[in-house]
Design a protein around this nucleic acid. Sequence first.
RNA 1: GCCCGCGUGGUGGAAUGGUAGACACAGGGGACUUAAAAUCCCUAGGCGCAUGCCGUGCCGGUUCGAGUCCGGCCGCGGGCACCA
Length: 855
Amino acid sequence: MTIRDQKMQRYEPHTFEAKWQAAWEEAQVFTARHDPARQKYYVLEMFPYPSGRIHMGHVRNYTMGDVVARQKLAAGYSVLHPMGWDAFGMPAENAAMERGGHPKDWTYGNIADMRAQMKPLGLSIDWSREFATCDPEYYGQQQAMFIDMLAAGLVYRKNAVVNWDPVDMTVLANEQVIDGKGWRSGAVVERRELTQWFFRISDYSAELLDALDGLKDWPEKVRLMQKNWIGQSRGLQFAFSTVDAPEGFERLDVYTTRPDTLMGASFAAISPDHPLAKHLERHDPEVAAFVAECRKIGTSEEALEKAEKRGLDTGIRVRHPFDNAWELPVYIANFILMDYGTGAIFGCPAHDQRDLDFARKYGLPVLDVFEPAEGGDPVADEAFVPLKSEPVHYLRGFAGQEIQTGEAAVEAAIAFCEANGVGHGVTNYRLRDWGISRQRYWGCPIPVVHCDTCGVVPERKENLPVCLPDDVTFDIPGNPLDRHPTWRDCACPKCGAPARRETDTMDTFVDSSWYYARFTSPRAATPTNAAEADYWMNVDQYIGGVEHAILHLLYSRFFARAMAKTGHLPQKAIEPFNALFTQGMVTHEIYMTRDEAGRPVYHLPEDVEGGKLKATGEAVEIIPSAKMSKSKKNVVDPVSIIDAFGADTARWFVLSDSPPERDVEWTSAGAEAAFRHLGRVWRIASEIAASDVAANDQDAALEKAVHKAIHEVTQGIEGFAFNKAVAKLYELTNTIQKSGAGTAAKRVAMKTLAQLSAPMVPHLAEDIWAMLGGEGLVAQAPWPKANPALLVDDTVILPIQINGKRRAEIQVPKDMPREEIEALALAEETVAKVLAGQAPKKLIVVPGRIINVVV
RNA sequence: GCCCGCGUGGUGGAAUGGUAGACACAGGGGACUUAAAAUCCCUAGGCGCAUGCCGUGCCGGUUCGAGUCCGGCCGCGGGCACCA
């Protein structure tokens, strides 16, 4: 072999990756075709926010989707694999505020950059269907649906609280509130009520809950999280009669999931947002001060739960429903949510830790309602809160048995109360209606007009889209739409009189709640096209991060139902995602040094070598495995990886080693190893292409290994165990390399390896395929089928355990009868020695698996 | 605080309740080379001279048999309704 030949036989992905991408493009391999003769398959990865740079998490997400899409294409499906941009949202406005410019320019510029970074990955995406949610063609259709949903009674307005920054005079998102203060102004944030638009998702609580059972191919944990989020509960709603309450508040409605503890009640409590609290606030300075204090906590449930539990005695009392002489004080308490139940509760300190803490703090009585069935001490500092399924002994019960489970006692208590005219049993949900109003510019305008005579009037559909005006500035905080007179002022669509446009825009979750449907007909003049939606829906495989397990997925499930109700989706699409896969993050070590003041200074991976800074030799502190983030500088830029190693190496790396649902740690050693392996595969292929060995007795063994690999790799891909599929491909590579089989058999083996690798490393696969004389593109070759006859082994090795510990093994024919195996096992040397002529206590034979001898 | 998940060699991980550590990374040894790179081969959980013993975050339980199932902890991660 000459030096020139050696040079030619190197794996140089840059010489062919672009070539094969052009070949796919030329052959229109990935254009989704509505072909009624073929079964369709719709693969979708959660679309990205156009931040400007792709990161390894994207590479991992889209490579997984690509593996599925390419394998299904090879398996004969008509595949839809689209890509778009979740393009509205706060970062674009923040960029405009910080750096000047316009959110639109920033966003479209980022999209162009990210598309250019994604294309070299060689993803099998039908780019002809691409859109961004900030395209007027997209959000105009969203506005049309909003109008339809408004007409269908799915949308309404009500008051709701927001975070208000009193210095910047603007509404803040929860993430912009840090320790109760505005992120820019540092001012203490207030809760303020605004009239806002809501979707009636809570009307669908029961249905969204029940339908979870049908989502067989969703992760169990996601279904469980959604179930808990919807939060169905069975309880009693009843009214206390009040003593010394203001006029109009003669009754206080409360909801409880533990009516069986009614005889252990020691106080009632209402939310600071309860109408009674609001009434008292106006007349009582002490209440006003307390309620004002409560409103500083912020709007998130997390903040509320973590805040110190506090209350204020209103002086009002309520009568116990079963004893007119028994009066309970009414507190305003900062931990009661107005949105849940009736915004008022009764507290039973003995059997609820929060109530107990509250009672101890304010010197309220603690009455034990029940004790452990076997008896126990009265409650002291720890509430007695057994599982509802556990039987307990009732001391202050009033319905049902003396010893019964909490569940039974609750039902008995509800029945008793209903029979005695004290309230009624109700089923409640934790799920609240979906507030979509955002006091921001960069979002889909809510297409309604406020008219002094007609009230709130939807825009006429022929006037859609209601486009965002371009002439806006972000030099002062707040919503530029609010101070844009020529955009804001308009004519009422109904009476023509001067009117004002709604200046709130929609939550970006609305945008992402139907993009999957729009991909089925992305240029249609209506939100969807019935025939296309009918063919392509549902999404057969949806892939994205677990961080979307609740909100995005729940909103999408609701929105699909709302679209079906308004005629924009077929009924079969109300559960839009047949299968869901939630993938893990890409992590990396963090490299840190400290400055003179001891503050941490972070360093990029490319600036560090061998635990030291390349520039200065200073040792760095290594913090293991954390989610890649710009602020910690533990990021690896996919573009630089592709430049250094090619796209296939990046793709191969993110699929190997870690199971897809778990986090994967990016290491430069791993990336180099992936590159080396692909180089080896390429070299073995080129050696086979140049070799000429006659058929021989090793061909059969190689063929068997190939078919085993077909079976196992296919199983790995279909079961979303890409790391295992990769391991099997390593094994097959090793087998081919070591095999002394003839060239013909090796060519078949290598071509099959190319086909099995194509979903993961498509460029390399094409190159090998072409090298070995494969017909056409491997991307269009049918997926190989394993011959079942070649998958079974004639003999199996059975390990023998003695008392559960492995001591020996025997090799037996695959279908040897149990009795013969038993005899062989007992005759085995080690076993015979241990038994010493005695019969075993027990002999367990699991055919094809194991033998356990118990002595 | 509440809901959900995860925890296995030096590292990433594999294992329908049935041989713990497949496959790979890093390491050690060797071959080839004037040398290096590249490549190839061998080795490899810990302890012990060894029959062997110990090992899947910790404690307990079920089972002939537990990484896997159950109960209780510890640690880490995700979500908590205006981040996307």
